[in-house]
């Protein structure tokens, strides 16, 4: 490897790298957040116990079937193929010309949503039955139980898996270069195409990807610790407090 070339490439092309990395981050952050919201909704709906009344029961069953079709389809096909199908398909079939960024975010969100739905479902299942029963026993309905008791615990538990998904998204947005999204991989390819220094150019991209994923790891660790709260607690109004005898020498 020629270090001088690396430095030259960076100094000549840094705006492109930065824009590419920025685009990658933007798509993966928004995609992960939207995907997590989709996943939370889908996961929560899929864990609603089947209601007694027939009408509601049928509606829930139909929704569940639709959700599992969605999840299975998007987990079961490569994102690079979905990108092609959705971006070109939407133009051909519906005459919708999506702008590239919207398409990119849409594809990443819907993909993440499919994975997150299963992560959330696993998270809800892992909460002990007693937590649901205790909430129901004080009169909470399903939504109140979920919102006040179950989901806070689920979100804490699925945070590591969500971080995983975020990191996968940062790396996998690179496949969106097939529809021409100007993310980091696309930009690096242009740089390399100009200077024919493929190895050095992609080495720079490699380092940038790693910096982004590692930063995300550190930030999520911090959040986990924050959510866990302090290890210790302080007692309130403890009666037995030891007071030291007053030092009379303080008098002037």
């Amino acid at each position: 490897m020629n270090l001088e070339w690396v430095i030259t490439i960076i100094s000549n092309n840094w705006p492109m790298f930065i824009r590419g990395a920025g685009m990658t981050l933007l798509i993966s952050i928004v995609g992960t957040i939207l995907g997590a919201i989709i996943g939370l909704l889908a996961g929560v709906i899929r864990t609603i116990p089947l209601p007694e009344r027939k009408g509601k029961r049928i509606i829930l069953k139909v929704v569940n079937i639709l959700l599992s079709m969605y999840i299975e389809f998007f987990r079961g096909t490569p994102m690079i193929v979905q990108a092609m199908v959705i971006y070109y398909g939407s133009a051909l079939a519906f005459g919708v010309n999506m702008d590239l960024l919207t398409a990119a975010i849409f594809i990443v969100s819907i993909n993440t949503g499919a994975y997150m739905a299963e992560i959330v479902r696993g998270g809800v299942i892992s909460i002990e039955k007693g937590q649901f029963e205790a909430a129901q026993a004080i009169g909470m309905n399903h939504i109140q139980t979920m919102w006040n008791v179950i989901l806070p615990q689920v979100i804490r538990n699925i945070l590591p898996a969500t971080g995983n998904q975020f990191i996968i998204n940062i790396k996998d947005t690179s496949v969106l270069n097939v529809i021409g999204v100007t993310e980091l991989y696309f930009q690096t390819k242009s740089v390399a195409g100009n200077n024919f220094r493929y190895f050095e150019s992609f080495f720079v991209a490699c380092v940038l990807y790693f910096i982004m994923t590692y930063a995300v790891t550190l930030i999520l660790r911090y959040f986990e610790r924050k959510l866990d709260g302090p290890e210790n607690y302080s007692m309130i109004g403890q009666p037995a407090q030891i007071t030291l005898p007053k030092n009379n020498n303080n008098r002037q």
């Binding site: 007694e52 937590q131 029963e133 205790a134 909430a135 026993a137 004080i138 009169g139 008791v149």
Partner: peptide, 24 residues
């Protein structure tokens, strides 16, 4: 069928064998 079970349950206090305090 028509009775609202949530408003009934809030009038009963329940203490479980496994405590079931809200962990969060």
């Amino acid at each position: 069928d028509r009775h609202d079970i949530h408003s009934y349950r809030k009038k009963l206090g329940m203490v479980f064998q496994q405590f079931n305090l809200f962990n969060n």
